[in-house]
């Protein structure tokens, strides 16, 4: 969990300082991280709010960027839908990319210990995100843009560490290759829905190869 908490450091600090630079009060910036816990969505929303975008534009952009979480919820549905409400609400609130990345284990969420583990991991990301936001707010305008320093490589490296060991079948390999090519292509096209489109395309490819593997 620690590498993942550290990996979001540049983004948290970036969000905090960006919000202050764009005219958010310290309270508003911190409240955003505390109640939304939304990463990229927060950074985009800050820019849109500062540009006086309409509320519908802001909410639609938020929906587009956050749409991948629908997939995470679907993926974990069978494991979590019968858990008590307090578990569903707390883990639902904490279900970030990072927590989902740790959810691939066969036994994830299947017993009490696993649930507490997820709560601890998700909770630690939440605390880290809010601490990094706070540092960004305090540093405010005195900080350079940390993503330009290349610290965002940390998030790429942690995701590589989580993805590569899962590549054990042709279907997963094809999924990863298609996701890579599609996401880079859509990113160059500056397609707003690129991430979720690349994800769905790659899942379809993996699913197709999986069917072919089963027939062999």
């Amino acid at each position: 969990m620690l590498p993942l908490s550290l990996a979001v450091l540049p983004w948290g600090i970036l969000f905090g300082s960006l919000a202050v630079q764009r005219g958010f009060s310290a309270l508003e910036a911190q409240a955003f991280s505390a109640i939304a816990f939304g990463g990229t969505v927060q950074i985009v929303a800050v820019e849109l709010i500062a540009d006086n975008a309409s509320l519908s534009t802001i909410l639609f952009s938020a929906l587009v960027i956050t749409s991948r979480h629908f997939l995470y919820g679907l993926r974990l549905r069978e494991r979590l839908k019968n858990q008590p409400l307090r578990w569903r609400l707390s883990l639902g609130f904490l279900l970030t990319d990072e927590l989902f990345a740790l959810s691939g284990h066969r036994h994830a969420y299947k017993n009490r210990l696993r649930l507490y583990y997820a709560l601890g991991a998700g909770g630690s990301f939440y605390i880290a995100w809010n601490v990094w936001t706070f540092i960004g707010i305090v540093a405010g305008t005195s900080l350079p843009d940390l993503t330009h320093l290349g610290l965002d490589f940390a998030i790429a490296a942690t995701f590589i560490a989580l993805i590569v060991p899962t590549i054990k079948t042709w279907s997963v390999l094809v999924t990863v290759i298609v996701a890579g090519i599609a996401s880079v292509t859509f990113s160059l096209w500056q397609l707003e829905t690129g991430l979720i489109m690349a994800g769905l395309l790659a899942m379809t490819a993996g699913f197709a190869v999986n069917g072919w593997e089963r027939r062999q």
């Binding site: 991948r68 997939l71 995470y72 679907l74 993926r75 069978e78 990319d97 989902f100 990345a101 959810s103 691939g104 965002d152 490589f153 998030i155 790429a156 995701f159 590589i160 989580l162 993805i163 899962t166 590549i167 279907s171 997963v172 999924t175 990863v176 298609v178 996701a179 890579g180 599609a182 996401s183 880079v184 990113s187 160059l188 690129g194 991430l195 690349a198 994800g199 769905l200 790659a202 899942m203 379809t204 993996g206 699913f207 999986n210």
Partner: peptide, 23 residues
């Protein structure tokens, strides 16, 4: 549907990661 969704992890995580590396 469950088989399809089992690919969501590698698919979405790779899609987040690769543009950081190559774009």
């Amino acid at each position: 549907a469950r088989d399809f969704l089992s690919f969501s992890g590698p698919a979405v995580l790779t899609a987040i990661c690769m543009p950081i590396v190559l774009v």
